[in-house]
């Protein structure tokens, strides 16, 4: 019992920090970076990703003994696509504006490398519950970095947070950095966030020595 508890703690720490999808593995930024100009869009996108990643890792793991090895990739893609279609259909039905805002990016979760990466690296060789945990915490580690980026971009670029005007940044004294809500801002923010987190990590490693 004790063994499995340290195991899951290890999974959590790995997903959130040591093996964080964004600043360690640098995977899967494509489809989500584009929506980080508004916090709300990012939240919806991250929820979609958490749902897809954890459930598809779990499903891949359940089917792992039944899938022939040479068509494995194709089966994984289909499983991922299945969950993405569920998200897409739900969004279209209950929240059409959001579906319009996100455009093709919901569909692009299919080719998001982190989903495929986790299914392939972990789901494929581990039991379902652990694959689910691994997927969940990788997705959470991914989401928290993206939310940091989105928060900075929205506040600096538009002076709002979740659409609500912020005290200083929304006022006339703050000259809005329009560049932050445009594509270059996303690259800069992600570069800076990666830099900060990696530096913290390097420092922690040096201390441990």
């Amino acid at each position: 019992m004790n063994g499995s508890r340290t195991d899951s703690r290890k999974l959590i720490v790995e997903g959130l920090w040591h093996n964080n999808p964004i600043f360690r593995q640098v995977l899967g930024i494509c489809s989500t970076l584009a929506v980080t100009n508004l916090v709300l869009n990012t939240v919806v996108m991250c929820v979609a990703l958490i749902f897809t990643l954890s459930l598809s890792a779990c499903t891949v793991s359940i089917l792992r003994t039944l899938t022939p090895r040479n068509i494995r990739m194709m089966v994984e893609t289909l499983i991922i696509a299945f969950y993405v279609i569920i998200v897409d259909v739900l969004l279209k039905a209950y929240w059409p504006e959001m579906s319009g805002n996100l455009g093709p990016y919901v569909g692009l979760i299919i080719t998001n490398c982190i989903v495929m990466g986790r299914c392939e690296a972990y789901g494929n060789s581990n039991p379902p519950v652990r694959a689910l945990m691994d997927g969940l915490f990788n997705a959470l580690g991914y989401s928290f970095v993206l939310l940091i980026i989105a928060t900075f971009r929205e506040i600096l670029g538009m002076g709002t947070f979740l659409g609500i005007s912020m005290p200083y940044f929304g006022g006339p004294r703050w000259d809005k950095w329009i560049i932050m809500v445009m594509p270059p801002g996303a690259f800069f923010m992600l570069g800076i966030v990666t830099w900060v987190f990696r530096s913290i990590e390097i420092r922690m490693e040096n201390k441990n020595k």
């Binding site: 640098v26 270059p184 800069f188 570069g191 990666t194 900060v196």
Partner: peptide, 13 residues
């Protein structure tokens, strides 16, 4: 800390 992906992203920006 900036080596690898960090600097690449800033150049991309």
């Amino acid at each position: 800390g900036l080596q690898g992906p960090g600097i690449t992203l800033i150049i991309a920006g």
